[in-house]
Deep mutational scan, measured.
Amino acid sequence: CHSECLGNCSQPDDPTKCVACRNFYLDGRCVETCPPPYYHFQDWRCVNFSFCQDLHHKCKNSRRQGCHQYVIHNNKCIPECPSGYTMNSSNLLCTPCLGPCPKVCHLLEGEKTIDSVTSAQELRGCTVINGSLIINIRGGNNLAAELEANLGLIEEISGYLKIRRSYALVSLSFFRKLRLIRGETLEIGNYSFYALDNQNLRQLWDWSKHNLTITQGKLFFHYNPKLCLSEIHKMEEVSGTKGRQERNDIALKTNGDQASCENELLKFSYIRTSFDKILLRWEPYWPPDFRDLLGFMLFYKEAPYQNVTEFDGQDACGSNSWTVVDIDPPLRSNDPKSQNHPGWLMRGLKPWTQYAIFVKTLVTFSDERRTYGAKSDIIYVQTDATNPSVPLDPISVSNSSSQIILKWKPPSDPNGNITHYLVFWERQAEDSELFELDYCLKGLKLPSRTWSPPFESEDSQKHNQSEYEDSAGECCSCPKTDSQILKELEESSFRKTFEDYLHNVVFVPRKT
């Protein structure tokens, strides 16, 4: 048989008469490798580009789960590009990614509803959504962080984005990388972005840091009482949809009607710091009717980097990364020049730590249904340095008659930039024990000054392991946590139920 035959053949030295091919099969003959313009397919066939392209389009058009959109890589027609490569849609070739590779997620039936953290986790790592997304989240724990972890990498949506009755959302900033909504599939009414009845939605994105392009379709905003109209108009300008909307697409009466839409800028007039305090004062603000001013709200939190936005980490279910302080308005003076500047002394802060701070007014709604208010920009203030805590785990070892090696770990709280350490030492008198000992005694162990690591005695271990207080009263049991108490109650309830079950099964009433 021919060298490319495997198993047997019907005619000697003829690659077209093989029972099976050793390498690849091409047009009725066995070959060692697939010549151009053919590609290896499933490690035994040679196919042309049209064959591989037909497989790709067949799966793409069917949208069946589990099928493969075949691509070409290293002269092979394979189910998908290997790690580190992405497909070129024009020629199906796998090309190296520039940075992290995109991950295209194809949605069944063309859309997916995100109504819980669990459903959001199914899209973790996706960068391109081939379909439409509907966000409908009523509640949950730590929602802002969970949504950002699972949806934060999405850069492109081919269909539309719909935010509907998501009472738990305060902001859409968890879509931190969303840059493009194509609108290839539109919501009824030709809408590519749809926001309806979101009672706590206050911000779409921080438009000073976020760009969003909507290729096709219109915007729809109705019944978002805490979303200011200025935020919607800003989205029109940034996304390129200005002029597409009709009169009733953006409701003037049901958007922002319960919001404090600040239209003035508060400026800080005085800032002073110490290692654990920050004193702030800002310019006074009074609405047209000074009785509408209820006070100020001061927001602050630790910020290692200057990239904080107002609604980071917030949701309507209680999660809030900001510390909020309510401040009463100052006494009002008739003389504008003698107006008191409101302020606040922030206490209990960490030394040498940068804080993000902003302040906003708290006002009631005027009778004319106009909203007044003022808010400052987010500023960054760093507390002063102070003395560091003591170095940890000092170790001293003498390696000769004239040297001592000293080692330690950095302090747990540096409280500033540590530039150097101060080492103090003092000579001590020799131990009298060394002169009084009889060095001729056998088995004498000389006193040693070398360091030995501390260890816990058996008594201390027994005390720590004991669940009861000892007789001397030195140790006591740790208080039980809520989960331990709940577990004990469940076990007790189970024992009672099981005992009742045994009584009912074992003891049967005697027939009379």
Rank of each mutant, 00 (worst) to 15 (best):
Y285S: 13
Y167P: 15
G373Y: 03
G318R: 09
E237K: 12
T353G: 02
T383Y: 01
V170I: 12
Y355Q: 00
Y270V: 13
R370S: 06
G189K: 02
S400D: 14
F311E: 15
P351E: 04
A195Q: 02
Q216E: 02
Q245H: 04
F221R: 00
S119F: 04
T185W: 12
F268A: 01
A385F: 06
W344Q: 10
D384G: 15
N141H: 13
L186D: 05
Q339G: 13
G159T: 01
E146K: 15
G152W: 11
L123W: 04
D377K: 14
T213K: 10
L298N: 00
A251I: 08
P411V: 12
R179L: 07
N320F: 11
P329A: 07
G140R: 10
W352C: 15
F193C: 02
D249L: 15
F365R: 15
L294A: 05
P288F: 12
L345Q: 12
K226S: 07
S239P: 01
Y285K: 05
R179W: 09
H341D: 09
C228R: 03
Q199L: 11
E111G: 15
S333R: 05
S319L: 13
R291D: 11
I157T: 01
I114E: 00
E155D: 06
D312T: 14
G243A: 07
K337N: 14
L349R: 01
P388A: 06
Q216L: 10
N200D: 07
L153I: 14
L229T: 07
K103P: 06
I250F: 15
L406T: 12
A356E: 01
V308R: 04
L201H: 00
Y305I: 15
L108P: 13
R138V: 11
N150S: 11
V363H: 07
P284S: 03
V363S: 05
T213C: 10
V170P: 07
N142I: 00
S260P: 10
Q306T: 13
K350I: 02
D335K: 12
P304D: 13
H341G: 14
K253E: 12
C228E: 01
L147T: 02
F193H: 01
L153N: 12
E187Y: 03
R202Q: 03
N320I: 05
A120G: 13
F220Y: 05
S333Y: 03
I135T: 01
V325K: 15
S171A: 11
Y194P: 01
H233R: 05
L294T: 07
D115T: 12
R244H: 15
L107A: 09
C261K: 02
M346W: 01
K301F: 03
S269A: 09
Y305T: 09
K253M: 12
G373E: 07
I163R: 00
E302D: 07
L180F: 12
W344T: 06
S274T: 12
S173Q: 05
T113M: 06
A374D: 01
N211Q: 12
S132F: 00
K267P: 04
I154F: 01
V390N: 14
W207I: 06
P411A: 13
V128K: 05
N211V: 11
R244I: 06
F299A: 13
Q121R: 13
S401E: 12
Q258D: 11
I214L: 09
P284R: 08
G131L: 00
V128S: 14
Q216S: 08
L108V: 15
L227F: 01
K409T: 06
G131M: 01
N307M: 04
I214P: 00
L161I: 14
D206W: 04
N334P: 10
G313H: 13
Q382L: 06
K337F: 12
N248M: 09
S338L: 11
V170E: 10
Q314R: 12
D206M: 05
Y300S: 06
S401D: 05
L169H: 04
V363T: 08
L201G: 00
R369D: 04
T371D: 05
W344V: 06
K226P: 02
T113C: 15
I154V: 12
N248W: 12
T353R: 05
R370W: 13
T273H: 13
P288K: 05
Q403R: 13
T185R: 11
G373L: 03
I134H: 00
C317H: 15
S166F: 07
Y305M: 13
H233T: 13
H210Y: 15
N263I: 09
N399P: 12
T353Q: 06
W408M: 02
C126R: 00
N320R: 14
S119R: 05
N141P: 13
Q403G: 15
L252P: 10
K267I: 15
A374W: 07
K253F: 10
L123F: 11
K209M: 10
K177P: 01
E187V: 07
T364L: 01
G159E: 01
T215P: 00
S398T: 14
P225H: 08
D393S: 14
A374E: 02
L108Y: 10
K209W: 07
F174S: 05
E283T: 12
D315V: 09
P330E: 11
F296S: 01
Y191D: 01
S166I: 05
N399Y: 05
K234Q: 10
I129N: 00
S333I: 05
V359W: 01
D292L: 11
E122L: 13
K234W: 07
R244T: 07
K409V: 12
Q339T: 07
R369V: 09
K162H: 13
R124V: 07
A120S: 09
L298Y: 00
R179H: 15
N334T: 14
T323R: 04
N190L: 08
Y305V: 15
T323A: 13
T113F: 05
Q382W: 05
K253H: 13
T309Q: 12
K226L: 07
N200Q: 10
L280G: 00
A259Q: 14
S192T: 01
D393G: 06
W286L: 11
T361P: 01
A195V: 11
L180P: 00
P388S: 07
D328L: 04
A251N: 13
K350P: 01
T113R: 03
M346D: 00
N334L: 05
K226F: 05
E148G: 05
W322S: 01
E246L: 09
L331P: 04
K162P: 00
S321E: 13
K234A: 08
A195G: 11
G373T: 08
L153V: 13
L294W: 09
S398Q: 12
T241E: 08
G217A: 02
L212I: 07
K209A: 11
G343T: 15
L161P: 01
K277Q: 15
I163T: 02
G243K: 15
D115R: 04
L204V: 06
A259L: 12
N190G: 13
P287T: 12
F221S: 05
S132T: 15
S166L: 08
D377G: 05
C261Q: 02
